[in-house]
């Protein structure tokens, strides 16, 4: 075991898979000699060579496009999009192409591609760096979307994503990159895709969150406990597909739910989760399911992040509403 930040755990996962499978290729803008703008790929080119870890020209559409082409030659591409706000440049290659490859070829070809990209607010980035756009990919059949909230999960989920034979978008929250350390096994291990994790057990209300909102939910749960409210916190880990089994099990126990996301209310995954719960467990609900989400504006100008981004206080407020319904 070693104490690792999330970024170190990600590098460790990439190193593990580069070692395990010679078909794994890591590429993107500045991921080679520079080791990535966040150092996620630091040292990998020196260790595995330019054939395995390489820089590309600055063009997201082609970065995702070549991943599809490389897959036809038996490779397992792990491209990086420098910030997920730049995904719009690559939307056709992702949602229009790789998501559909297995289906459109009648299961004769596949795209074992893992797209890594940082996102998320609270670190004062310039425009279109922090936007939460997971909802766009999650709406595309053929894609999977993974969002880890801690170093342990990040390593295990990334190894699973790389080994998955279908395309995965792996979103790394910038605020979580170095915000805390955690025990991470040095050997390889996997965390199954599509499985949520109960981070904190509780009996009064279920908080469903992902990304940076997991930490906020845990903090909210600690606050709520002071008032005698026991919140159960579920970290989705994979936002598509959603682990409804874990969610419903919790709802049946607590009978109250708040879904928490950093994305705007009209975006993200919360609406999908609310719908699934009301279809599957409406008779177990004591109150409407409420959402914590950002306002439906364009992502905040840097200096407005603090007033705009959802935080633990917003979660406490929504839980109190649900408890007093």
């Amino acid at each position: 075991m070693a104490q690792m930040t999330m970024i170190q755990a990600i590098t460790d996962a990439l190193r593990t898979e580069l070692k395990n499978d010679e078909n794994v290729l890591v590429f993107g803008e500045d991921v080679g000699q520079n080791g990535g703008v966040f150092r996620a790929t630091e040292g990998l080119q020196d260790e595995f060579g330019e054939e395995r870890v390489f820089d590309t020209p600055l063009a997201e559409s082609a970065i995702a496009g070549i991943a599809i082409g490389l897959a036809t030659q038996g490779y397992r591409p792990v491209p990086e999009i420098q910030f997920f706000g730049f995904v719009y440049e690559a939307m056709d290659a992702i949602n229009g192409q790789m998501a559909r490859l297995r289906y459109r070829t009648g299961n004769t070809m596949n795209a074992p591609i893992t797209i890594r990209a940082p996102f998320g607010g609270g670190v004062h980035t310039p425009e279109l760096h922090a936007d939460s756009l997971e909802g766009l990919i999650a709406q595309q059949p053929g894609m999977k979307v993974v969002i880890p909230s801690n170093p342990y999960d990040a390593k295990g989920l990334l190894i699973s994503a790389i080994r998955d034979n279908d395309p995965v978008v792996f979103l790394e929250h910038m605020k979580l990159y170095r915000s805390f350390r955690e025990e991470v096994p040095e050997e390889e291990y996997t965390v199954e895709l599509g499985k949520a994790n109960v981070k904190r057990e509780g009996t009064d209300v279920t908080l469903i969150a992902y990304g940076a909102m997991v930490q906020a939910s845990i903090k909210a749960a600690e606050e709520l406990e002071k008032n005698g409210i026991q919140a159960e916190v579920i970290d989705l880990r994979t936002v598509m597909p959603i682990d409804m089994e874990t969610i419903i099990e919790s709802v049946k126990k607590t009978n109250r739910v708040v879904v928490v996301q950093e994305a705007q209310r009209q975006a993200g995954m919360a609406s999908q989760i609310v719908t699934e719960i009301q279809e599957r467990a409406i008779l177990h609900l004591e109150a409407p399911i409420l959402r914590v989400a950002a306002p439906d504006t364009v992502y905040a100008f840097t200096q407005a992040e603090e007033v705009w981004l959802p935080n633990y206080e917003d979660i406490v407020e929504k839980v109190n509403k649900v408890m007093n319904f």
Binding site: I66, A67, G69
Partner: peptide, 19 residues
């Protein structure tokens, strides 16, 4: 999708070269 085949072709060709 007009153009998509061009970026993909670059990737196929890169893969052939690597192999």
């Amino acid at each position: 999708i007009i153009g998509a085949q061009y970026t993909q072709a670059a990737g196929v060709a890169m893969g052939m070269k690597k192999r």
